[in-house]
């Protein structure tokens, strides 16, 4: 079981926030084979909104950079965890640059999920979806927005039980592990 960790921390954040290392260790202990992509080390241009990945070269982004490798590795994983500082209740720009480039993973055609319009999936097997958000302080509005965002992403991902954990950026290893264990257990992940 391959778990892809998409690390959206900047180099500066990564010096103090060790949560990715703890996540890796916990996933390994639970039987996953984790791999981390530190997005700060990759070259990923922003999505241009051209829809070429649906209508020109289906399934492949027309921009040839590391964004393609991220998508390939994601599609070939069994699960993904987005690791990000909670940024105005959402994902960091660094993480989002990679996420905007993964829409070739889905089909342009529509389906209905929970009475709403979503897209059909492109691949038969979709990696399980999860997120670990690191909160800068105790802002309740941002925490709630992050949880809602992850839940909305899960709907588009056709993921019924996402593994979502939220901890303070200054949380220690014990607190982070406890939050992750709870998230994995609730989602029914190994």
């Amino acid at each position: 079981m391959k778990l892809l960790i998409l690390d959206g921390l900047t180099a500066e954040q990564a010096t103090t926030m060790r949560h990715g290392v703890w996540l890796d260790a916990l996933a390994r202990a639970r039987g996953w084979t984790p791999a981390t992509l530190s997005l700060r080390t990759l070259t990923i241009a922003p999505c241009t909104g051209c829809f070429g990945c649906w209508l020109r070269t289906p399934g492949i982004c027309v921009t040839d950079d590391d964004g393609r490798a991220v998508l390939r590795q994601l599609v070939q994983s069994d699960g993904v965890i987005l690791l990000t500082p909670v940024t105005f209740g959402g994902y960091s720009a660094l993480l989002k640059r990679a996420l905007d480039r993964i829409i070739p993973m889905i089909s342009p055609f529509f389906s209905t999920v929970n009475g709403e319009t979503h897209h059909r999936l492109r691949y038969a097997r979709q990696p399980r979806f999860g997120a670990l958000g690191l909160l800068g302080d105790d802002d309740a509005e941002e925490a709630q927005t992050f949880r809602t965002l992850a839940a909305r992403n899960a709907l588009n991902w056709h993921e019924p039980r996402p593994a979502v954990a939220l901890v303070r950026a200054d949380a220690d290893e014990t607190a982070t592990r406890a939050a992750l264990q709870a998230a994995f257990n609730t989602a029914g992940w190994p």
Partner: peptide, 16 residues
């Protein structure tokens, strides 16, 4: 526009 239930990355970077 709405991008992946959120804002496009360049706008998030602008906000940051």
């Amino acid at each position: 526009p709405l991008y992946v239930d959120s804002l496009p990355a360049p706008l998030i970077e602008t906000f940051e």
